[in-house]
């Protein structure tokens, strides 16, 4: 075993893939050759440094890009891309842009007329204490209105009842009158028939 031969087998020695006999011969050479010993140490160091080389992890963006480029499966879904943008897109085309603008201006004008008057508000109106106060005030107004509604309701119910009673009363009166007249009529008819029979007998 010489240095040249040793060098050709160096990697397999370091990797531990040599058979026992050849390995033993190399180790005998190493005991007497400092240059080869140093070379072994350097190659072992290089090998272990390369083995420890930190690997790069592929990012999720890269994986998605690969899949999108190949099978096309990945598609970033968002409410904007899937729903809102396709809905708005037709209105933003040149054809409908003018109509969209007119509609927007119309809504602004209508909102200005019948919507809340924002100029009446100030920042102090949005303090928590102011909001609580307004909520309380609003609540008592609502309660008052409910009271008024209930009063009106009871008054109306009473009126309806009286009307109903009155109506039934009138109906009863008319019905009785009709029955009485009908009875009187039938009695008069019977009386008239009897007179006719008596005259015939004579």
């Amino acid at each position: 075993m010489n240095c040249s031969r040793f060098e050709t087998l160096l990697s397999e020695y370091v990797d531990g893939t040599l058979d026992a006999r050849v390995r033993a011969a190399l180790e005998v050479h190493l005991q007497t050759c400092s240059a080869c010993s140093m070379l072994v140490q350097e190659v072992q160091s290089v090998r272990s440094q390369l083995a420890d080389f930190p690997p790069i992890e592929p990012s999720e963006e890269l994986i998605e890009a690969i899949i999108e480029k190949t099978s096309g499966r990945f598609h970033v879904r968002s409410i904007w891309a899937e729903v809102i943008a396709p809905t708005l897109r037709p209105f933003l085309t040149q054809r409908f842009a003018f109509a969209t603008l007119i509609m927007f201006v119309f809504l602004l004008l209508v909102g200005n007329v019948i919507g809340p008057d924002f100029s009446a508000f100030s920042f102090s109106d949005f303090r928590p204490s102011a909001l609580v106060e307004q909520a309380d005030r609003f609540s008592s107004q609502v309660q008052k209105k409910w009271g008024q509604i209930r009063n009106t309701e009871s008054r109306l119910v009473g009126e309806v009842w009286r009307l109903k009673e009155d109506l039934y009363g009138r109906l009863d009166y008319h019905l009785i009158n009709m029955l009485v007249r009908s009875y009187q009529h039938s009695i008069e008819e019977q009386g008239a028939r009897k007179e006719v029979k008596g005259e015939k007998k004579k």
Partner: peptide, 16 residues
């Protein structure tokens, strides 16, 4: 095997 061997030795020398 030959390439790996030469590569490692060469790399060790370069790094040294």
């Amino acid at each position: 095997k030959s390439r790996i061997n030469r590569g490692r030795i060469e790399l060790a020398k370069v790094l040294r």
